[in-house]
Design a protein around this nucleic acid. Structure first.
Lengths: 345, 345
DNA sequence: CTGTTAGCGCATTCAA
DNA sequence: TTGAATGCGCTAACAG
């Protein structure tokens, strides 16, 4: 039954009052009589009235729409899924609804969805930009006074807020941790030097080596796919060196898993005989490999902070002040869980 | 610079035409002169005009809003994240934008977000309902002629479309597979009998045993948490039986991992000496354990089909016909990947 | 406390 | 081919 839309005027008639009285009731105004209010509410319930935010928003001069956009480069990556959940959590509490779009690193799609979201009246945007995103992609938004905050990834020239994790510090902390355990040959395994994230982590590793009074040996930095297979490959190459490492900082946890696989196939027990540290990118909180030290970023917490930052910008009206926030919770810990919590469908 | 909103009238003035001419250009009408069209387009570009879909939609009598809602019980579970990506993919292609909300199994939140989405004018809803969802939760939507399709989970009494996977057939296929390999003592490990999914899989297991001419032995059905730890626990109990099993159907892949862990700690090689089959719920496509047979549901494909179903319902106008679709791709395969693809931030 | 009037940005008649 | 008028559902002034 595609019922006709029930409008304020319908319920006004039903309640025997005028539209504006109904409007006042809707806004919870105290200027309306209790009994009148009750009658109006009753009518709304009976007729199945639903508030039309689109119309309301249209009327207000330059109101904020209680809608935000959220575009993610890869929701398939559970890091971003967790990020989305964190964002969603605070947005819901703040009475917002969010558009979600997955770009899959496709920049044309990204442009389309941003344009589409604008037409739909978002009052803010959180974006983890696809590779190749340019500062110009945010010009229109910024120009229209719509706050944008970038999460996880950053686009150099863009004059918008951003919230990224401190990759440099994380890698440095990992090295310091291993150095303190007595390791002197520490490898950096996995990843390709074509991303900002890689560069940051690698530089952190490099700088920390020097800080710890250790030499930087280029042979110990072995690039490989940021996957489990890549980790296997990298550790194989590493162990074939004349003087193999005794510990490794891995580009991410997938690589770290692969490194553990490779070590085990050589009858070396990871953790005990060979120390492995990995960034919690892929599997993060849900999984933990015993005796594997991880650098954790808490994607949900990052999402919440991102959302809060956007809300602040929206409310402050002046979206001008582009706060370039950096760093989030990032701890080196010894994990000991049994891994892979049971998600249930 | 919180610029004033640029409206059709602004660009009409700039182009030296009337508002309705602009409107015609916006709709790509062929009733407008080429040069005029060019002038209008130029003006739009210069002034940075953005189409206001809210207003446009308000004007039309009972237009469909090109917005759909999507509420998920747990986006943290990568099965649902993949599902969301599949849905997003076809919705984007169809020119829709989608609201996303994560309920975290909280039914009050679910009611709130559904109400909120209605107020924002969704023209359809895809929902993987939180536990405890009642048929009545969809009454308002259905009454307003807004199509709803449930994904993955089903709510018995609800008169809305749904798309669920064929759990019974999957479990049965697993048993048949193991029986053909010569196994006669096949266990069902993990999960708790408080969910429909468990019941369906368990019944599939049970029915298939009988079909294969094997006895159903209640001792071989061992409940445990649907997690890796649960899998360890279940296989421990199973192997302590007087006549232990030689193969197992696991409630999900997390359990299967745990079972493999448990077997290895007993120096039994999973796959070779003991056959393990698990549903791909948690880690699905991204991970694969060598020599572990999995029953795969392809969440993205399921998402795409779900979205298509919703679009069909939206376009058919009459949302009445609640098609109770069932079953999606579900194959028994021998996986052999290295597992955990490298997601990159 | 409640009703009247006007208009948000747009699309759709109807004339010109 | 284009301009003038009308209304979608709602809020914002004012009057009463």
């Amino acid at each position: 039954m595609s019922r006709e839309r029930v409008t304020v005027i319908d319920i006004a008639n039903a309640a025997g009052v005028s539209k504006s009285t109904v409007s006042l009731v809707l806004q919870g105004s105290s200027l309306v009589n209790k009994t009148t209010r009750a009658k109006v509410n009753a009518a709304m319930r009976e007729l199945g009235y639903v508030y039309n935010r689109g119309a309301a928003n249209l009327r207000q001069a330059n109101a904020k729409s209680k809608i935000v956009g959220m575009v993610v480069n890869d929701l398939t990556n559970s890091f971003f899924a967790e990020l989305a959940v964190g964002i969603d959590s605070v947005m819901q509490s703040a009475g917002y609804v969010q558009f979600l779009a997955n770009t899959g690193e496709n920049i044309d799609r990204q442009r389309e969805v941003i344009a589409s979201m604008r037409e739909h009246g978002i009052s803010g945007l959180i974006i983890s930009p696809a590779r190749g995103t340019e500062a110009a992609d945010f010009a229109a938004l910024a120009n229209a006074g719509i706050p944008v905050v970038m999460a996880v990834r950053n686009v150099p020239g863009a004059r918008v807020s951003s919230l990224t994790s401190d990759n440099h510090a994380g890698a440095a902390a990992s090295v310091a941790h291993l150095a303190k355990l007595g390791h002197r040959r520490i490898a950096f395994l996995g990843g390709f030097p074509d991303t900002a994230v890689f560069t940051e982590r690698f530089m952190g590793y490099r700088d920390a080596l020097i800080d710890a009074g250790l030499d930087f040996d280029a042979d110990l930095a072995i690039g490989a796919a940021p996957s489990r297979a890549g980790g296997v490959e990298a550790i194989e190459r590493a162990m074939r060196l004349a003087v193999p490492p005794t510990a490794a900082v891995c580009f991410n946890d997938a690589v770290a898993f692969g490194v553990c696989d490779g070590l085990r196939s050589r009858k070396i027990e990871p953790g005990a005989e060979f120390a492995v540290v990995g960034f919690d990118d892929v599997i993060e909180a849900k999984t933990a490999v015993p005796a594997l030290t991880t650098v954790s970023v808490d994607p949900q917490g990052m999402g919440r902070r991102t959302a809060q930052l956007l809300l602040k910008q929206i409310n402050s009206g002046a979206a001008e002040p582009e706060a370039l926030v950096k760093s989030v919770r990032l701890v080196v810990r010894q994990s000991c869980g049994t891994g892979i919590q049971g998600g249930v469908r």
